[in-house]
Design a protein around this nucleic acid. Sequence first.
DNA 1: TATGAATGAGTGTTCATTCAT
DNA 2: TATGAATGAACACTCATTCAT
Lengths: 240, 240, 240, 240
Amino acid sequence: MSEADERAPRRRQARGERRITQLLQAAATVFCTAGYTASSTNAIAREAGVSPGTLYQFFPNKEAIAVELSGQLLQEMEATYGQVFTPENARLPLDRLIDAVTDPFIEFNKSNPVFLALIKGPDTPGKLAEDHDVLHRSMVDSVIELLAVRSPSMSPAERALVAQMCFTQFKAGLDLVVQQEGEAREPYVRELKSLLYRYLAPLVGTEAVPEAGGGDQSQEQQDRGKQQAKAAPGASLGAH
Amino acid sequence: MSEADERAPRRRQARGERRITQLLQAAATVFCTAGYTASSTNAIAREAGVSPGTLYQFFPNKEAIAVELSGQLLQEMEATYGQVFTPENARLPLDRLIDAVTDPFIEFNKSNPVFLALIKGPDTPGKLAEDHDVLHRSMVDSVIELLAVRSPSMSPAERALVAQMCFTQFKAGLDLVVQQEGEAREPYVRELKSLLYRYLAPLVGTEAVPEAGGGDQSQEQQDRGKQQAKAAPGASLGAH
Amino acid sequence: MSEADERAPRRRQARGERRITQLLQAAATVFCTAGYTASSTNAIAREAGVSPGTLYQFFPNKEAIAVELSGQLLQEMEATYGQVFTPENARLPLDRLIDAVTDPFIEFNKSNPVFLALIKGPDTPGKLAEDHDVLHRSMVDSVIELLAVRSPSMSPAERALVAQMCFTQFKAGLDLVVQQEGEAREPYVRELKSLLYRYLAPLVGTEAVPEAGGGDQSQEQQDRGKQQAKAAPGASLGAH
Amino acid sequence: MSEADERAPRRRQARGERRITQLLQAAATVFCTAGYTASSTNAIAREAGVSPGTLYQFFPNKEAIAVELSGQLLQEMEATYGQVFTPENARLPLDRLIDAVTDPFIEFNKSNPVFLALIKGPDTPGKLAEDHDVLHRSMVDSVIELLAVRSPSMSPAERALVAQMCFTQFKAGLDLVVQQEGEAREPYVRELKSLLYRYLAPLVGTEAVPEAGGGDQSQEQQDRGKQQAKAAPGASLGAH
DNA sequence: TATGAATGAGTGTTCATTCAT
DNA sequence: TATGAATGAACACTCATTCAT
């Protein structure tokens, strides 16, 4: 009896998880086809082959679906490509760092185009706090950590600023990339990486950063300072 | 008699044009509040204080409103800030060129925040061709012309690529800027300009470009070539 | 002065008549294209190149347009084909009588296809009293007169019944005819005439009817009675 | 368990089918009151006492309602009066054939006046293909089959022509009949039957047609040929 | 748990008609 | 006389969400 009591709920939970997966896949399809704002819960339920009522047993509204989908996507991405925002990556030469971070997202977006739809969020302003901001915030935070590892001397405020810029530009660039068809995408990818490289070079240096062991940290800082000066002399011109 | 025949119709049009202005203002408000996709024609009419039928006497649908509004905004911006994409601006030092182009848009967007909503367009994928593409395309084209003046040696394909990147990044950056409140915006503006500067420096040089007058045009080209090489050595690193 | 007083109104009336003609032509076009029920006054005004307000200065509503159009059409048809429902025609041999009455309408409908739309009326039941019934009633009355001339012995009630049947069937047959394209119409016309012929033959006789001069009217009646018996022996079978 | 799985969905359908019946009845009422073209889906929903959304869960649009209603009506008619277009009926004496076919329709239309509204269809020209054409075409086809049984020597083209004429005339006659009130209808019914009788007599003969069993079919054909010649000598007069 | 029926305010759009000019 | 702007209820149809089963 007690066994049955335990098993039944588990079965139900298992079924529930399957339903949720089903619904999230359907939501991904619909979001991609129609855009987030224009997607309807009825359409998602239909796509999932379940009734509207069933959908509302797992999600209280459309936003919750987007939030959950974002979480699942992020999780899936990590499972597929391993941790992207690792300290090891943070210390790579800049070009390799950019590859290490952007390639997985670009690749991932090819098989899960809903990823872009979610990080872009709805065109409705103000309403974005609840919803796709989960994804947004977590990714910006990851970039901030990356910066903290690579450039510990940078102020938290500047880190936040730079991280937001990076993520925003990557998002916009990815959007531009996926608007291209087939082979036309590659030049856009390269251009996006160039942009990030040139933007970051004077801020975080171009060369690999050795792990901050015992001593001599100041020297590393100095080195990187030089790199920066060399890498982008334009950065010393006024505001630029 | 013939005078009256001519005057009478104009009076009607005057009232009509007043309504159109009213409706466009209402549309601007609604687009900003709700986003383009979620804005309804009925909401616009309500905001304008007219009946739905009245709206449809002047605009056949929502897209037409967006198109007209885009046109009016561009016109208004030009009236306020003058032509922005001029050959003279194209030949300025890069930092001043960027100021000359971005400042009016940023400034203008402060009093007309619908501008951003329009260039962002609906979040519906694929459907963007008809309406806000007017704005989009015209601005990208303007950037292409700017590049053509400043860097005639650049291939058309590259010009298109770079112009799209610039516009896309500016759009995204502006979005980021307006998400900030009050004084917090300024650092974002500066960062956006830095980004554009560093991105463009190796492509179009940082210094003023003399007008291609009588002699020695090839020499000027050479000079800029040198600038570029000096400005961003990182550009020679692999794909970056 | 008194001249001016007289001329001005006349000019206005002349203009008015022109406007009315213009509007009626437009209405004819629209009725034919969209059907009566689906035709809108705005569409008629647009087709006529005038404003909705102008239309309502001449017609209080859509029905009034249909009524007036019916009148004009009837008038025009008479002007074109002469009086169709004449006592002379009534006395022709039946086949020639049918030709004399139906051919003008069929011909006329080729150049004025709105004719059919009007005699068919809207598919809305009950509302037809005011509107196209003018045309309908006047035509049924004409058929009744024809019968009265040709078969004075027929009771008024029977005349009414037969006239209505004739007109109804002609209307329906004409509808069938115009649904055919080009040369396919001719067989339908012939079939329609056959139908009318066979229907009427036992009722009004097939041969010419001499004018009812002084004497011998009863003889004529007898003759026609014989014709009928010969023409359609089936008519004596029960209800048929 | 599997039983419950099967029963549950059926219960839902039961409620749904009740609603469908309700909606179709409401549609019948509205079509009769307002005519097909002027009937609105909202009005049907209102008449059925449900919300517009409910209607659209069962029917995608107005036409679908008409189609379904047509189907139900034909089915109901068959359930009430049995098959009407049977080979047995086709071989009856003409007067009894006409009774056998027309009486059920006339009778049925008394309790289901929407039947006429549906076979009349919208007054919009050209647009009639989709919806009520189901009814129209199926009935014309039935008449064609009747003719095929009764007069196998008739060419397919002629059968089609005659069937269309019969159906058209019956439709128009029925319309005329229902415009009359109470007892006034009977004479119109008789007149309509006379008309059909006289029209068809020379084409399909007036007498019963024995089934084409073993021998001597050609003789039967001959007999009917004679009947025809005798029945309507007018048929040999020119076009008539 | 899952269904699918139900809702009712919402969408974009049209209409016959009126009214100020 | 004629305009064209204005109306507001109506249209066909959709939506996120709820509820009885």
